[in-house]
C-alpha cells in the first residue's frame, strides 16, 4: 500500500515581479509524480532549489498543491478536516536543530505535539517517556535543550515527532548542519525506527553516503522526479548525476573510474566490502 501518492502535483510560491509589479508564481513543482510505500526507507536527492523541500512540505500538508492531487495516508489535504490527521501521521524533522525546539525543558518539548492533539494529560507522560527512550535521550528528559549538542537536539526533535505516534517521518536535510558524529546519531535513529518500529522514512539529504542506506533513491530536479530506483542503480549512473550537480559516493566513483579505464567492473558498487569482493574475484 502507498502511504504517500503524489499525482501530477504542481506548486508555486507567489512573488511580486519588480518590472511589471504583478503577482507572479514560481514553478517550483512541475506536475511531479511519485509514490512512497508504507514501511519504505526512501532518500530524496536534488540540489538546492530543485523543489525537494517544497515536496516535503506538500507531503505533510504544510503546503497544499496548486494542481494535481496528493493522497497522504489515503487522505486528501485539500479537505481541511484531514490536515491534522495528516500532520499527526507524517511528522517532519527540519534542518536547523535550534529552530524547532519550543520548550526550555526536553520533556516538555516532546510533549508539545501530543498536547496539541488534545491527548489527556495522564496519557501524554508514557508517550513522552517512550519517545525519549526510543531515541536514547531518556537521561536528558529534564535538560535544557539549548545546552545539548546538535545531534542530541535533533534526536529530541525526532522524539517530539514520535510522541505523536506517526506512520511516517520526513527528515528535511536534518543532518546538514551536524558534525559527522551528530549525523551518525540521527541516521542510526532513522534506520532503527524504520527497521524496528516499521515507520516509513523519507530522508532528504545532500550526503550521498546517507542515501546509499535507503531502499530507494528518488532524484528531484527542476520540480520533477527525474530518477528513481535502488541506490545501486541510481549511483551507477554517474554522468547523469554529475549533470544534475550531484555527487556519487567515493567508492562508486572509483568503480566508475576503473570501468572507464577498461576494467570489467560493475559500476553499481557502493561499499568497501563490495569493492574488495569485486577486486578479489577479478578475472
Amino acid at each position: 500500500m502507498d502511504i504517500i501518492k503524489i499525482n501530477n502535483v504542481g506548486f508555486g510560491y507567489s512573488y511580486i515581479d519588480e518590472d511589471s509589479n504583478k503577482t507572479m508564481k514560481t514553478e517550483t513543482l512541475k506536475n511531479i509524480n511519485l509514490n512512497i510505500e508504507t514501511g519504505e526507507f526512501v532518500a530524496i536527492l536534488g540540489h538546492n532549489g530543485s523543489g525537494k523541500s517544497t515536496l516535503a512540505k506538500i507531503m505533510n500538508a504544510l503546503l497544499l498543491p496548486d494542481s494535481g492531487e496528493a493522497l497522504i495516508i489515503g487522505l486528501n489535504p485539500s479537505n481541511e478536516s484531514n490536515i491534522f490527521e495528516i500532520r499527526r501521521n507524517v511528522g517532519m524533522v527540519f534542518q536547523n536543530p535550534d529552530n524547532q525546539i519550543i520548550a526550555t525543558i526536553v520533556e516538555e518539548d516532546v510533549a508539545f505535539g501530543p498536547e496539541n492533539l488534545s491527548i489527556p494529560p495522564d496519557k501524554i507522560r508514557p508517550r513522552v517517556d517512550s519517545a525519549l527512550k526510543n531515541v536514547g535521550m531518556e537521561n536528558f528528559a529534564l535538560a535544557n535543550p539549548a545546552y545539548l549538542s546538535g545531534g542530541q537536539k535533533q534526536r529530541v526533535a525526532i522524539a517530539g515527532v514520535l510522541a505523536m505516534k506517526p506512520k511516517c517521518i520526513i527528515f528535511d536535510e536534518s543532518t546538514a548542519m551536524l558534525d559527522p558524529n551528530g549525523r551518525k546519531e540521527v541516521l542510526d535513529t532513522a534506520i532503527k525506527l524504520n527497521k524496528e518500529d516499521k515507520i516509513t522514512i523519507i530522508l532528504i539529504t545532500h550526503f550521498m553516503d546517507e542515501a546509499t542506506l535507503a531502499d530507494r533513491v528518488i532524484v528531484v530536479n527542476d520540480g520533477q522526479a527525474v530518477m528513481g530506483g535502488p541506490p545501486k542503480s541510481i549511483f551507477s549512473q554517474i554522468n547523469e548525476l554529475k549533470a544534475l550537480s550531484l555527487d556519487v559516493p567515493q567508492i562508486t566513483e572509483l568503480a566508475y573510474l576503473l570501468s572507464e579505464k577498461g576494467l570489467n567492473i560493475n559500476t553499481d558498487i557502493l561499499t568497501i566490502e563490495e569493492m574488495v569482493g569485486a577486486l578479489c574475484n577479478y578475472n
Binding site: 512540505k57 511528522g91 524547532q100
Partner: peptide
C-alpha cells in the same frame, strides 16, 4: 526573523493551532 519563521513552520508541523482543545502534560 528567520528563526521565528522556521519555528512557526515547525510548530504547525506538530499540529499546533493555538489553544484550541489543547491539553497539558504537567497539571
Amino acid at each position: 526573523f528567520r528563526r521565528a519563521d522556521e519555528l512557526a513552520t515547525a510548530m504547525e508541523a506538530r499540529c499546533y493551532r493555538g489553544d484550541i482543545e489543547r491539553t497539558k502534560m504537567k497539571q
